[in-house]
Nucleic acid binder design. Structure first.
Length: 456
RNA sequence: GUGAUUGUAGCUCAGUUGGUUAGAGCGCUGGUUUGUGGAUCCAGAGGUCGCCGGUUCGAGCCCGGUCUUUCACCCCA
């Protein structure tokens, strides 16, 4: 006998969890489709050459690699062994589990360039795997819900992303959240404006901790990272920013007046907000955060990140614009913008905020109970009749005490039990018991159907 | 990858300075004259104390390793 267990960082989803996950996924899917995105799927595993080198050194380490089939050591010589795993990896493993949905999508676009018509809008909801250390809101297997549009530089896409996020959150009843928005060009501009050109990477890593550790500590870290005292002082106007999107844009326009790329970033953001205004989208929940930085390696324009306030979970959604999605796969000049919802984290958030609807699971509406073989056979006729009408019905599959059958229905929180006994066989009716009220009545087939259809 | 932390019945947890047959609540199974569930009562089943090794006359308890849980850092959804 073996004690069952799960690999680190993975989970089972029971019926209740699946119902709740589907509740979230449906809200996301409906929105994606409403906005004209088409669903695709890609394989769980990709060639390792597709995956490596796309996520930086740390990302490569987090890739789950798949050992070659057959004798995976056959290409290894005794001289290879001391060289370590990094050098020998290509001989042992040619495939890996997907790490995100963006790179497989890029591969897909490059491979199907001739069949796709651009701009191409796709969504994709699939699990991804990371060999990370699990902790709160972090799993080794989790789902991403990506929506990307490639082949256009229109900033309408950015505006629509904000719109979609607002729509999904509204559907899920999430009210206290912030969509943080920034533009990579603004970050570049800020680094330029303080005289530390090209160092926006370390700048953001440090500034990002402002809320957590305070300005003094951030200053220390910036000094450590080789920033000039004078440059750091120039940042001060950005530390205690006025709130309000328009106010901040005005400040940044001022701050970046020496940086053409920075001004470009501000201009792009302004256009996104103009679109939103024309679309009649409110700007509450939208925060312009000039220090927001994410995945600097490939974002080139807009950057998004969504956080729900008052919960202990990290960001639940994020994304941005990239100039050249498919360049590494031999298809240059395909710009795009996309974002992703983290369902697993949204689940944790909704659970923490108690926002899941209390509705009964969409399970069986009526259980047909009986006392003996004759009742069971009578139940078979009702089963076909009810199911033909679209009533979710089940027949207790073996002869047993009524008590047991009622307990079964009770535990599954079914609304009705239909009892098939001798009296019912004689009258051709069904004794329908409402399990919530305990009331029961003898009904004909049309009466019963009407009753069951009344309930979800 | 670094540093902590957790593991005892299906679940939530007790278990004294190392000392006989490891406990509770909930849940589960069965019963209370067989056509009626949730409540009460009665009875019962269920544990190689995560796993491997060590110390000891003796280990759930001490030591080492390993796996797992949770958390912080890094990074990220």
């Amino acid at each position: 006998m073996q004690k069952p267990s799960l690999p680190k960082g993975t989970r089972d989803f029971g019926p209740l969890q699946m119902a709740r996950r589907n509740y979230i996924l449906d809200a996301i899917k409906d929105t994606f489709q409403l906005f004209g995105y088409q669903q695709i799927e890609t394989p769980s595993m990709e060639n390792l050459s597709t995956l490596t080198g796309k996520y930086g050194d740390e990302g490569d380490q987090l890739l789950f690699k798949i050992l070659n089939s057959g004798d995976f050591l056959k290409d290894l010589t005794s001289e290879d062994l001391p060289k370590g795993s990094a050098t020998n990896l290509t001989k042992l493993s040619e495939k890996g589990l997907r790490y995100d949905l963006t790179v497989p999508f890029a591969r897909y676009v490059a491979m199907n360039r001739n069949e796709l018509s651009f701009p191409f809008k796709r969504y994709q909801i699939q699990p991804v795997w990371r060999a990370d250390r699990p902790q709160k809101g972090r799993y080794r297997e989790f789902y991403q819900c990506d929506a990307d549009v490639v082949g256009t530089e229109s900033l309408l896409c950015e505006a629509e992303i904000i719109w979609m996020i607002r729509q999904v959150f509204a559907k899920l009843g999430l009210k206290d959240y912030a969509i943080k928005v920034n533009n990579r060009k603004i970050l570049t501009g800020i680094a330029e404006a303080i005289g530390e050109q090209g160092k926006e990477g370390p700048l953001c890593v440090a500034i990002d901790k402002l809320d957590k550790i305070g300005w003094e500590k951030v200053k220390e870290e910036l000094l450590q990272r080789g920033f000039e005292e004078a440059s750091i002082q120039k940042l001060l106007p950005l530390v205690n920013l006025a709130s309000g999107v328009k106010e901040r844009l005005a400040i940044l326009t001022q701050f970046l007046n020496q940086s053409s790329i920075g001004r470009q970033g501000v201009k792009e953001l302004e256009e996104v907000f103009r679109f939103l205004e024309q679309l009649g989208i409110q700007l509450d929940h939208v925060d312009f955060d000039p220090m927001l930085a994410r995945g600097l390696s490939y974002y080139t324009g807009a950057i998004f990140e969504v956080k729900v306030n008052g919960v202990s979970i990290g960001s639940v959604s994020g994304g941005g614009r990239y100039d050249n999605l498919t360049g590494v796969f031999g298809l240059p000049g395909v710009p795009g913008v996309g974002f992703s919802f983290g369902v697993d984290r949204m689940y944790d958030v909704l659970e923490e905020l108690n926002l899941f609807p209390q509705e009964r699971l969409a399970g069986t509406q009526v259980l047909l109970a009986h006392f003996d073989q004759a009742g069971l056979e009578y139940g078979l006729r009702w089963l076909t009749a009810l199911r033909a009408e679209g009533v979710r019905a089940e027949l207790y599959p073996e002869v047993s005490k009524l008590k047991k059958q009622l307990e079964y229905a009770s535990k599954k929180e079914l609304p009705f039990v239909g009892i098939c006994g001798d009296e019912e066989i004689a009258s051709g009716r069904l004794m329908v018991k409402n399990l919530t009220t305990g009331v029961q009545e003898s009904l004909t087939l049309p009466e019963a159907i009407a009753k069951f259809k009344n309930r979800p």
